[in-house]
Computed example of a mutant assay.
Amino acid sequence: MYNKYLVIDKSILPDIFDKVINAKELLRTGKAKEVTEAVKKVGISRSTFYKYKDYVFTVSEGGIGRKVTISLLLNHRPGLLSNILNIIANAKGNILTINQDIPINSTANVSITFDRANTIVELDVILQQIKEMTGVAKLRLIAME
């Protein structure tokens, strides 16, 4: 049997999962030296932390895949797609495919698949940088392999 993974928006999950992630981050960054200190800071029990720590990951931490496909709805602006590709390239992502529709009503659908095996920036940071760009009307993480 193999493990199955789901990518779920954390807004629909109980807060406990986010707290486990926060405790793991405190330990990883050295802001908490021991599990007891980390769980106390985030407000969960040690048993809760140990129950979920090996099963709850951020998208970047999970390592469940190296190929990422995102779907974008972009305003028709010169250089916008190039800037998005530069964000991925600057993070050492390797673009695999780009599919772009012809702009209709000044917006175009674009899908980009890239390899994140050698990225130096976490995936959620890359996605946030793209999402915050002027002209990006919508961004969705479609798949990870």
Rank of each mutant, 00 (worst) to 15 (best):
M1I: 03
M1Y: 01
K4H: 10
Y5D: 13
L6V: 14
L6F: 15
V7I: 15
V7T: 14
D9M: 02
S11A: 14
D18G: 14
V20N: 08
V20F: 10
I21Y: 12
A23I: 00
L27P: 04
L27K: 03
R28A: 00
G30P: 10
G30Q: 06
T36Q: 09
S45K: 02
S45P: 07
S45G: 15
R46L: 06
R46I: 11
R46A: 09
R46C: 06
S47K: 04
K51T: 02
V56Q: 02
F57K: 01
T58K: 07
S60W: 09
E61Q: 04
E61R: 04
G65L: 07
T69A: 08
L74W: 02
L74T: 03
H76M: 05
G79I: 11
L80Y: 15
N83L: 14
L85C: 10
A89E: 11
N90F: 08
N90L: 10
G93L: 00
I98Y: 02
N99K: 09
N99P: 08
Q100F: 10
Q100Y: 12
Q100H: 09
Q100T: 12
I112L: 11
D115I: 01
N118A: 14
N118H: 14
V121L: 05
D124G: 08
V125K: 13
V125M: 07
I126N: 03
I126L: 01
L127W: 06
Q129H: 05
K131W: 07
E132T: 12
L141R: 03
L141T: 08
